[in-house]
């Protein structure tokens, strides 16, 4: 496995603080810098497609993914993303087949999956620590191997967005018209759902399941308040997410504050949202 030292050196140079000399802080910062923009970009379409609940359900399935890994004796690193993908595709498939409202189907799957996870975990009391990680996130213990995973996903996702961003926007506006114009709607939807599932699973790692929705939606919603076009929205969402990630991490390490990193990142981005809402109200068009 190649070394990431060059990137760490650059980060340490950019942020010349005392705590940035610690290696786990460097890894945490790099992890957040990769995950936050991914989540922000996917979040734009999550807002467009009204998929916030879908994302939330996938986030909760991460928990069951961990539990499955325990039963099968496979590292959660593999079972978590695999199970996330499985749940994502199952929901998409059932939504196409059934007459029930989309959100009802998500709700049913969501709670069934979580109940299954808890049933498994309740039999293995020693996994309590994993449950904590799942609830609150654990960006500070991320390893180099995880970073490589995330880096790979990062490139795949941005290549996909590079080609698909405008088409997905079109889809969000009017899927029938998009279909007529030769956009393969179902293919895009399935790829998008797959990528979203993976991003959500990695975000669970960073901020915990309860705050994943925030990491996805808040930068996109704030960007919408600032931006005049969908292209601007894309860049604003990325900038907002990165700034919140860095500020959140740094604030959480100040020894007099010392709060949970994930929660702090989300709170910083929520402040962004308030600023953007005020901006849209008083200064926007």
């Amino acid at each position: 496995m190649p070394e990431l030292t060059i990137i760490y050196d650059i980060l340490a140079y950019l942020f010349p603080f005392e705590f940035m000399k610690i290696s786990f802080m460097q890894r945490a910062l790099l992890g957040l810098l990769l995950i936050a923009p991914m989540a922000a970009v996917m979040g734009i379409q999550v807002v467009n497609f009204k998929m916030a609940f879908f994302a939330d359900a996938i986030g909760h399935s991460a928990f069951t993914g961990v539990a499955l890994g325990l039963i099968l004796g496979i590292s959660p690193q593999w079972t978590m993303p695999a199970f996330g993908l499985f749940v994502g595709f199952s929901i998409m498939w059932s939504q196409r087949k059934s007459t029930l409202a989309n959100d009802t189907i998500i709700g049913v799957f969501f709670s069934g999956v979580v109940a299954f996870g808890i049933a498994v975990v309740s039999r293995n009391s020693h996994v309590a620590r994993d449950v904590q990680t799942f609830l609150y996130g654990d960006i500070l213990t991320i390893t180099d191997q995880d970073i490589w995973f995330i880096l790979l996903l990062f490139f795949i996702l941005f290549i996909f967005q590079f080609f698909a961003y405008n088409r997905l926007m079109y889809l969000g506006l009017n899927s029938t018209l998009a279909e007529v114009h030769g956009v393969k709607v179902s293919v895009y939807q399935f790829i998008f759902a797959g990528l979203l599932s993976l991003v959500v699973i990695f975000s669970v790692w960073a901020v915990g399941v309860l705050l994943v929705t925030a990491l996805l939606i808040i930068p996109a919603a704030s960007a919408r308040n600032f931006a005049n076009s969908s292209g601007q929205m894309f860049w604003y969402a990325i900038i907002i997410s990165i700034v919140s990630a860095i500020l959140g991490l740094f604030i959480s390490t100040i020894s007099s504050i010392n709060t949970a990193t994930g929660a702090t990142v989300v709170l910083v981005s929520f402040i962004w949202y308030i600023i953007s809402a005020i901006y849209a109200r008083f200064l926007g068009q």
Binding site: V47, K50, A52, F53, D56, D103, Y136, G208, L210, L211, V212, T213, A214, L216, I217, I218, A221, R224, N258, T259, A260, G262, A263, T264, V266, L267, F270, Y273, A277, A280
Partner: peptide, 26 residues
């Protein structure tokens, strides 16, 4: 606001939760 309802739900509920955890940490 000009946002969809599920976005509003998402924003409010995760922020409330973050606030809870923020006070709770430690």
């Amino acid at each position: 606001e000009k946002i969809k309802e599920d976005t509003a739900v998402g924003i409010l509920f995760s922020s409330m939760f973050a606030l809870g955890l923020f006070f709770l940490s430690g």
